[in-house]
């Protein structure tokens, strides 16, 4: 795959940059330049938060060429908190842990590598929202002598 293809979408791929419609305020991802809500131009870049929840998901056991090294993997539709649905892989999670409605957050990962020699394509995936460990005031914390 020519590197220009992934390159021209780097803002969307790397950091989930969408668009906002100046007309009606709809936030769009993927960028589509014409607002589907009001049909007016929507070309103002808008960074999506990357937070959302699983709308649906599946496990791919028979991957297409180029994705064998990650299979079996989970792909999902994510309902972003700004409204749009987005297709992406889930990562850092096993199929048995996923459920519809699971809160997820965007991370930037390797989408595919094209073998040992090709350009590495990075892009958004989603993972379960990182759990914060409970930090109790630690009595064992070292004190200055």
């Amino acid at each position: 795959m020519h590197p220009a293809r992934a390159w021209r979408g780097r803002s969307q791929r790397y950091r989930l940059e969408g668009e906002i419609c100046e007309g009606c305020g709809a936030r769009l991802f993927p960028p589509r330049d014409i607002c589907p809500e009001c049909q007016r131009p929507a070309r103002t870049p808008y960074p999506l938060s990357g937070r959302g929840e699983v709308y649906s998901y599946t496990v791919v056991y028979e991957p297409p060429a180029g994705y064998e090294e990650q299979a079996p993997y989970i792909v999902a539709l994510i309902r972003l908190e700004e409204g749009p649905l987005v297709s992406a892989m889930l990562t850092d999670v096993g199929p048995e842990e996923v459920y519809i409605g699971m809160p997820v957050e965007m991370v930037t990962r390797v989408l595919h590598r094209q073998g040992e020699h090709g350009v590495i394509a990075y892009g958004y995936k989603f993972r379960p929202v990182l759990r914060r460990t409970v930090m109790l005031p630690s009595p064992s914390a070292p004190v200055t002598a």
Binding site: R5, P64, V75, V86, S87, A88
Partner: peptide, 11 residues
């Protein structure tokens, strides 16, 4: 959609 579905390993 090649840029927003297939690239994510979507079949």
């Amino acid at each position: 959609d090649a840029e927003y579905e297939a690239v994510h390993g979507m079949t």
